[in-house]
Amino acid sequence: MENLDYIESYFKNELPAEEKTQFEQKIINDKNFAEEVAFYCSARQIIKDELNKEKKEQFKKIYQQKNISHQNTGIVKKIWTFSAAAAAIIVIVFGWYFFVKPVSTQQLADEYIQQYFQTLGVSMSSKQDSVDVGKSLYNDGKLPEALQQFEKIINTNSKNFEAIKYAGIVSLKLKNYDKALAYFSQIENDSVFSNPAKIYKAITLMERNNAGDKEQAKELLQQIIQNNLDEKETAEKWLKKKW
């Protein structure tokens, strides 16, 4: 043990120059000590070889995995070719379905209502105004009560843009299309910061789907695009479809 520590100190270059010379001299003069040093070197070599053997095994595993993944890539490429052909057919069929087959305007309107008229944004202020009360009723699913609330506001102020807009939305949800159209028509030309009344009117027409409603809705959408009004992008998207 003591000699091992001494031998290690030499090979770790921890001995002063004088002791290093003594160490080398001891190898020459002391056969047993020389054998111990030789064993230390042999052991170190064999341990290193074992270590490298383990590392090579690990490398082999990695290499095989990499090659397997490359082979799999080849199979995947073939699958991809077939998949791409299948996908192309699906795209053609769906392309025809979406762009050539006439679109259901009612479906478009339904999707819009589903997406944007699910709830109405209520003011975060602790003090609710009368419009917020109507919106809360709407959000609670109390549509007739909400309509009553908005109409009460309109009765006191017939120019209340927000109340008229929400009265139109509630009427649309209640499938009272004529009433909804009347409300939206009242405000469609109001100069306010954001006025989506034209597209709401178009949606109402698309939902009602009476004779001529589709054409009228289309005309409203074209007006939105031409005049760069609110929901221009939606109007453009819808008009790209075959009506």
Binding site: I27, I28, A34, A38, S42, Q45
Partner: peptide
């Protein structure tokens, strides 16, 4: 000296003992 002694080492046996 160390080289000569190492040449006598039975590395297979040493590996086995390791």
């Amino acid at each position: 000296i160390i080289n000569k002694l190492m040449e006598k080492t039975d590395f297979d046996l040493l590996k086995q003992k390791l």
